[in-house]
Design a protein around this nucleic acid. Sequence first.
RNA 1: GGAGGGGUGGCCGAGCGGUCAAAGGCAGCAGACUGUAAAUCUGCCGACGAACGUCUACGUAGGUUCGAAUCCUACCCCCUCCA
Length: 415
Amino acid sequence: MRRFRSDFLHELESRGYIHQVSEPEALDELFLRERVTAYVGFDCTADSLHVGHLVSIMMLRILERTGHRPIALVGGGTTKVGDPSGRDESRQLLSEEQIERNKAGLRRSLGKFLDFEKGSVLLLDNAEWLDELRYIPFLREVGTHFTINRMLTFDSVRLRLEREQPLTFLEFNYMIMQAYDFLQLARRWNCRLQMGGSDQWGNIVNGIELARRIDGRHLFALTTPLITTASGQKMGKTAAGAVWLNADRLPPFDYYQFWRNTEDGDVGRFLRLFTELPLAEIERLEKLEGAELNEAKKILAFEATALCHGREEAEKAAAAARALFERGATPREGLPVVELDRARLAQGIPVIELFQLAGLVPSNSEARRLVRARGARLNNRLVEDETMVVDLGALEDGALELAAGKKRHVLVRPV
RNA sequence: GGAGGGGUGGCCGAGCGGUCAAAGGCAGCAGACUGUAAAUCUGCCGACGAACGUCUACGUAGGUUCGAAUCCUACCCCCUCCA
């Protein structure tokens, strides 16, 4: 008894990806009938995607796996405008150079999950059509189909106005740009469906509307639920910041640890959303009780890390974690590495500073507190003297292993 | 334009001349317990410093005072009511 007959929608539905769909039956019909092109847009606001984007990325993978054609659209053009959705303040305007850098970072993030080389998965940039727009012709073609009356009712602008927060004319145009994207993709690639987070519903519907009015096209929308943790937090937002997908932002070991530390109540849901294990397997895993559930968490962590960083990195991270938490040995392979100037170490560096250089604490005071709280370890030995100075003599196997608390470990290597 | 209220640490929020680096809560960090979970308990939680302590910080800029987050003046911003 399935609600959807098409593989794609059925798969999404059974793994918990669907929040809203426009015309479910018609879309299902479409997926049964033909190879469908669908897209997700990603703004270039940072130089890496993070786990918050993962749901969308996974959908593109499923789309491909079920025989359809995914488009990952990078917002090289729209980022110059800035999406006001869910924000009380204007985004800071990014320079063109910054956007270019971010774009390159996004390509790397996406490239980990989607293979753009073989041609069945497309990577496009909306700067391609947005940069070229001419104001008056654009207003005449597109602007006539939007009424201000209606635009004011969309959450993205309404909420801002209700809170009496300024909304610039630039930002006000964002939804038009995004609608226009959908129109362009429909025309150029016969793209029929746009997917995104639940906050994108309004923007997507605008695109559907626009394409219907101008071209008489029939397009669809599908949004994913906002993923929160069992204790109600927005997922992937730790206090330390976002959980990044690019390794230069967050080492694979830390990425693995993020998943390894999933709350009990989230394991099943996360396995469904963030791994590609068969559902039967997941049902078995989520039934595990008590400490047994840790096995499921390890599988979740491994699978999620393998998807993002490859199986080899996932193995290393898993091995490092195993040695660190299960045997107490010193497993260096797989730990995040920080490089340190050899000459500087030769002169001697106070431990306090060393912890700061390793990025484990933001200030000397913080490092001092860590030592006093008996949470600082050097080469697996508790650091008791905060005035201790570390030099080359402290190297073990050519490196220093620093730990802040039980979970945060770093390998400092002199170069 | 008029009247009143307010701007305090990442957030909320007390303080209303000295004992204020600023109560309390949340968030965070570490420790204990445990299953690398959750919950709970304990400690920490501006920077620099081994330490005495020093510096920076209560919207901004000045001032009064031995001494100001606290009083005065100007300015900026927010909220409520009236026009």
